[in-house]
Simulated scan of single mutants.
Amino acid sequence: MKDDGTYFMSNGLPHLPGKDIHNHVVHAKGWGPGTENELRETPVGGDDFAEYFQLTEPLSSDATTTLLEQLRAAAADGMRWLELEVSKESVGIAFSD
């Protein structure tokens, strides 16, 4: 798969039994395929930007829950959107319906 657009992707390790091992991606709203050139005008500054999130560790030193726990709680509360706010200094995470 050629990188195209802005998306969230899991390495899926370990892979789920019986599933194909291709990476599955979820594109950002408004940043789907064909928008990679527009990234140059954002704080990200171009393509090939990557930010890694550990699902099983707290997001910061003052966090008490892991990202996975936060994702599960948000889904249980009916939240459908994961919102990332990216700047040169930080990445913020929020959930919304």
Rank of each mutant, 00 (worst) to 15 (best):
M1Y: 15
M1V: 14
K2V: 01
D3M: 01
D3Q: 08
D4K: 00
G5I: 00
F8V: 14
M9R: 03
G12W: 00
L13S: 01
H15N: 11
H15A: 15
L16H: 00
G18D: 08
D20E: 14
D20T: 15
I21V: 15
H24S: 13
H27K: 06
A28C: 10
W31P: 07
W31E: 06
G32N: 06
P33F: 01
P33C: 02
P33I: 00
E36H: 01
N37V: 10
E38I: 00
E38H: 02
L39T: 13
E41N: 12
T42Y: 02
P43E: 03
P43F: 00
V44A: 12
G46V: 05
D47S: 07
D47G: 09
D48T: 03
D48W: 07
F49K: 11
A50I: 09
Q54D: 15
Q54L: 09
L55M: 15
T56N: 15
P58Q: 02
P58K: 01
S60V: 05
S61G: 05
A63D: 10
A63K: 04
T64A: 11
T65W: 01
L68S: 13
L68W: 07
L68F: 09
E69G: 10
Q70E: 10
L71F: 11
L71W: 03
A73V: 02
A74G: 03
A75W: 09
A76V: 07
D77N: 15
D77Y: 04
L82M: 13
L82P: 04
E83C: 10
E83G: 12
L84R: 07
L84Y: 11
E85F: 05
E85T: 15
S87H: 11
G92L: 05
A94E: 08
D97P: 13
D97H: 12
